[in-house]
Design a protein around this nucleic acid. Structure first.
Lengths: 158, 158
DNA sequence: CACCCTCTGACCATCTTTGACTTTTGACTA
DNA sequence: TAGTCAAAAGTCAAAGATGGTCAGAGGGTG
């Protein structure tokens, strides 16, 4: 293999495959030492090879006893629905309660979340909860709806 | 286990679980000696792992016959969980990701919501989604967590 | 040659561990 | 009773241990 990133990628995927719980926990420094590279190389490998779109979730903790955990997840099959909704969210200059509700209803119709979850989020994004200026509400709603889309990418089967 | 704080945390939780009265009384120096650490390490563990929002109450006494008592809060009425968490949310001047997570985990433990719902909300309230100044994040988190409590109260027949 | 990956290292953020110093409490003593 | 002292526990900031970020250098390929 020509570059160290590919080697590290293969190694991590091999360990992951053998793990049986679809998750591994590594110490960045250990891996860096094993492959004789700088620690930040591990971040590069993770950022380029173990992304959500490729079906991986990565969590980490710093400080004493720190770690990096990589999990294999199954992507939701309706990625197209999510991207079209993301387009909608991006294109609307104002995001009011009605638009939020429409998006949530659509997600429920597509069975990407259930009604209870939709209702919960609808409350959190209501005018009442977001006691703010209109512009700020739009800002928050946009970011939170996009965050929602990102989670839904891999839910159900992750 | 990776670090001594986690080990001590697990030990204390184990003893607590076996206690049957949901309370234990320890001598700081004894625990420190058992795990070969400085006494103030015990304070660190308690301050980071046995917090109010996680459902623990800690009392202590200094001087001769001193002790540290840790109690697991037992709430029979669902309403109490919400009220106590609302207090926590009101009293914290800063609401960071860690606190939000602790609150959500607690809600799941107390069966006020399920893990998927907690996961969704956790993402909506993450630093990433709330790409704002610290004070603004706190503001949003406070209002949305309180909105969540209101929904849960209603949902659980309060 | 241009462009896109890769690689590197300086600097940053976060969590844990440690120890010096402080406060509180109860027993003993004058 | 008041004062003193030793035995706890508490506080806090510095040091230590990890992982994260980012910009620039390096290198391969069309």
């Amino acid at each position: 293999m020509r570059n160290i990133s590919d080697v590290i990628e293969q190694y991590l995927k091999q360990v992951l495959k053998e793990s049986q719980v679809n998750a591994i926990e590594i110490k960045r420094q250990d891996i860096a030492q094993r492959f004789e590279c700088v620690p930040s190389q591990i971040n590069y490998v993770i950022n380029t090879r173990f992304t959500v779109e490729k079906g991986y979730l990565v969590e980490s903790k710093r400080g004493g006893g720190g770690y990096i955990r990589i999990r294999r997840v199954v992507l939701h099959e309706k990625q197209d629905v999510l991207s079209s909704l993301m387009d909608v969210i991006h294109e609307h200059p104002r995001l009011n309660e009605q638009l939020v509700e429409n998006v949530l209803i659509r997600l429920v119709e597509e069975q990407m979340m259930n009604e209870q979850e939709a209702q919960l989020i609808n409350h959190l994004l209501s005018d009442e909860a977001l006691n703010l200026q209109v512009d700020d509400r739009t800002y928050i709603r946009r970011h939170q709806l996009l965050a929602l889309m990102r989670v839904l990418r891999y839910r159900n089967g992750g």
